[in-house]
Design a protein around this nucleic acid. Sequence first.
RNA 1: GGAGACGUGGUGUAGCGGUUAGCAUGCGGCCCUGUCAAGGCCGAGGUCGCGGGUUCAAAUCCCGUCGUUUCCGCCA
Length: 451
Amino acid sequence: MQNIPKPEPLTPVVIRTTEAHAHIGETIRLQGWLHNLRRLGGVSFIVLRDGWGTLQAVTENEADLAPLLEEELSTETVITLEGTVASVPQAPGGIELHQPRMTVITPVREPLPVVISKREVNASLPSLLDHAVVVNRHPARRAVFRLSAGAMAAFRAVLANRGFTEIQSPKIVASATESGANVFKIDYFGRPAYLAQSPQFYKQVMVGVFQGVYEVAPVFRAEPHDTTRHINEYVSLDAEFGFIENHFTVMALLRDVLAHIFATFGEQYRAELELLNAKLPSVPAQIPHIHFAEAKELVFQLHSKELKGADERAEPDLSPQEERWLGEWAQKEHNSDFLFVTGYPMRKRPFYTHADPARPAYSNSFDLLFRGTELVTGGQRLHRYADYLAALEQAKLPIEPFESYLEAFRYGMPPHGGFAIGLERLLMQLLGAPNLRMTTLFPRDLNRLTP
RNA sequence: GGAGACGUGGUGUAGCGGUUAGCAUGCGGCCCUGUCAAGGCCGAGGUCGCGGGUUCAAAUCCCGUCGUUUCCGCCA
């Protein structure tokens, strides 16, 4: 048998910047982007950023920078760095790379449109969004979207753990009529179709299959609204489940879901929260709740002088200002970042909403305010076939477009309900962002279709 | 859909009738052995969104237009 030559020592193993601390004294390889280069004359600092963090390499030998200097390469050049991990007190994070050997993978020769090597991104919202494909590389920007990923993962985990099943319902749908929200019309092989404004009908139907379901997916709203907290495509964290007593059963589940999401942030996303200077809310074991009618009265008592019209109390909805006031009140009165507003008037809710048996003008539904902004809508739905027929008639809606939806109720559905959390709103309120677009990866709004 | 505000080098801004259009950051050069939003000196980079008007003179005042943004409405 032939002698197999002993293999050359393997090149240093590629590790992440965030794992380098476990390799002190070893020679490692990093792959990433040139985040920053600081030349102080006799000593130079190379900051490499990879998908997880940054790590500093240091050299007193100008020749180590040759791959960059010879071609006048700029930041964001993609590089490999090999070197020895050293524990050095004055280095950021206490570790740095010594005797760095650099190779260039993809050279960059142009200055960036928006500087991302500083601690803060100094850009207006439009340029931030125009150049999102590179600005999202900034550690603070990507921390937002790492938290976003964390929220989705935690949402899935807590519901899966309770026996819920994940579904993906179609986003191309035939019927346009669910609530008042406008829908985007599309051409489906010559037939009209629409982008789904919510998974509402499908998640209800799937309660008949799995009892408890959840979905993480985009929803589309063709509303021409122009505010800091609305966009036309957003991620909805939906849940729906059967055999509930009423909307309070749903609210209890929602409370646990949110508690788990924020607990996960606290356990696994400390670095991101710190970078973004975010303060986690504590989720009370019992989130305070107030009935819509009482909330209206309360706002009137507290702020009647500031109300614009005399008929504010009669409005069947809460204005953004009223929601902010209620948020302040919840903070002051209950020391809570959250407040449930229950029992919205039936006429403001979609046809599948279950009425309050004791007060039929009001619904078994709720909104959850988080720091004064609506974060979640939910409630109990109708579950009897006859009730649906009556509700559609009341709403002056035709039966035909809803036939397959109604089929589920014809053949037995339990009392059920659910909720939908706006993912970007969750992040916006958690981080105190002034605009929802700051917590949306690539926002779609009235005048933004790219990137 | 309604109301308001803002468009000045790549980016963020000051200037608001006569300025060589200022500052910061980025970029280029030089100096600097522990930076970490590095620092110091020098330099390049702007027909002040566009069109019209007022004026001896417009980045600055007026009108229009395009773009952006904030609040409200609708919606979540």
